[in-house]
């Protein structure tokens, strides 16, 4: 009997939807004949006793999930997400660089160093990319530290805030859309697809509006209903990062699809996989046959 470790933290378990998804994952693994241990940060040394590790906590190269991924790697244990995926996807400068290198379609993208934050430079960016622009702090997740700016003054106000957290920030052309496609990819294979419908009060999938958090709608979509070029782009973008599990966000305006980001550790707790009942089975199978 093989032993699957599911690495979680308190925040993962604090959310009822995530807890339900974790239990579903555990039940699937047990149905497949594996033993399952939930591993908390304090139990990190237990990782070496597992045969495969599935990280289900917010990943970042600076937090304990990266330690968990590295511990698995040191011990030759297959892991999702692997350290390289966490490093690349955790920093959007790194992620977009990789996507650009592989010729993946993106909105117009520039990296701005704190040393280049001048009025002339910012004006040039507006000239080149149009208005509004989207500014991103490289470690953003769940649309945190993603802001849309319309003027040079607004640009400076947001950029100065982000530059306190990173010496480089990302400037992107704004691409309007009512929804994002999310293409789930595992080891280069299509895994699932869903639509994240953006709330009308914001341009992000999640935002704080008048003190209230508004979330996007999630609709799982059968593969046959997803435009084939969107699926192809999703797989190509995931392959540019690595061989793990990724959720690729794509905007598809007038048939011109472009990648907004590639996420490691994609959410699976909000119904993303409703049309794909075998998602956990495939992930677990992948971990144990690696």
């Amino acid at each position: 009997m093989s032993r699957l470790g599911i690495f979680v933290d308190r925040r993962t378990l604090a959310n009822a939807e995530q807890l339900t998804a974790l239990i579903r994952c555990r039940d699937t693994a047990e149905e497949m004949g594996h033993a399952v241990d939930f591993i908390f940060p304090v139990d990190i040394q237990k990782i070496r006793k597992t045969d495969a590790l599935f990280i289900r906590a917010r990943t970042d190269p600076m937090n304990v999930t990266y330690v968990a991924a590295k511990m698995a790697q040191f011990n030759g244990i297959p892991v999702i997400d692997d350290p390289m995926s966490i490093q690349v996807c955790g920093d959007k400068v790194n992620m977009y660089s990789r996507l650009l290198r592989k010729g993946i379609a993106l909105p117009k993208t520039a990296f701005l160093s704190k040393n280049d934050l001048t009025v002339e430079h910012v004006a040039t960016l507006f000239d080149r990319m149009g208005s509004p622009l989207v500014l991103k702090e490289p470690s953003t997740s769940f649309s945190l530290r993603v802001e849309r700016v319309q003027s040079v003054a607004e640009f400076f106000r947001v950029a100065r805030r982000f530059i306190r957290l990173s010496d480089w920030i990302i400037v992107q052309q704004f691409v309007e859309s009512r929804y994002d496609w999310r293409i789930g990819v595992l080891d280069g294979q299509f895994l699932y697809a869903c639509k994240y419908t953006i709330p009308t009060v914001t341009f992000k999938i999640q935002a704080s509006v008048n003190g209230h958090i508004v979330y996007c709608g999630v609709d799982s979509i059968p593969r046959a209903e997803v435009p084939p070029h969107v699926v192809r782009l999703g797989i190509k973008a995931a392959n540019a990062i690595g061989h793990g599990l990724y959720g690729v966000d794509i905007k598809n305006n007038n048939g011109d699809a472009c990648v907004i980001e590639v996420n490691d550790n994609p959410s699976l707790e909000s119904g993303e996989d409703q049309c794909y009942p075998d998602v956990y089975r495939k992930i677990i199978n992948h971990l144990f046959t690696k």
């Binding site: 400068v93 660089s97 650009l100 290198r101 592989k102 010729g103 993946i104 379609a105 993106l106 909105p107 117009k108 993208t109 520039a110 990296f111 701005l112 160093s113 040393n115 280049d116 002339e120 430079h121 040039t124 960016l125 080149r128 990319m129 052309q173 048939g255 011109d256 699809a257 472009c258």
Partner: peptide, 26 residues
């Protein structure tokens, strides 16, 4: 960070990828 190969840029859909290297020289 490096610019994509010219060929790659040419294949991209209209209105997409441009590259950070076009920023003014430091």
């Amino acid at each position: 960070l490096p610019a994509p190969a010219a060929g790659d840029t040419g294949r991209l859909p209209a209105g997409t990828t441009d590259i950070p290297d076009n920023l003014p020289a430091p």
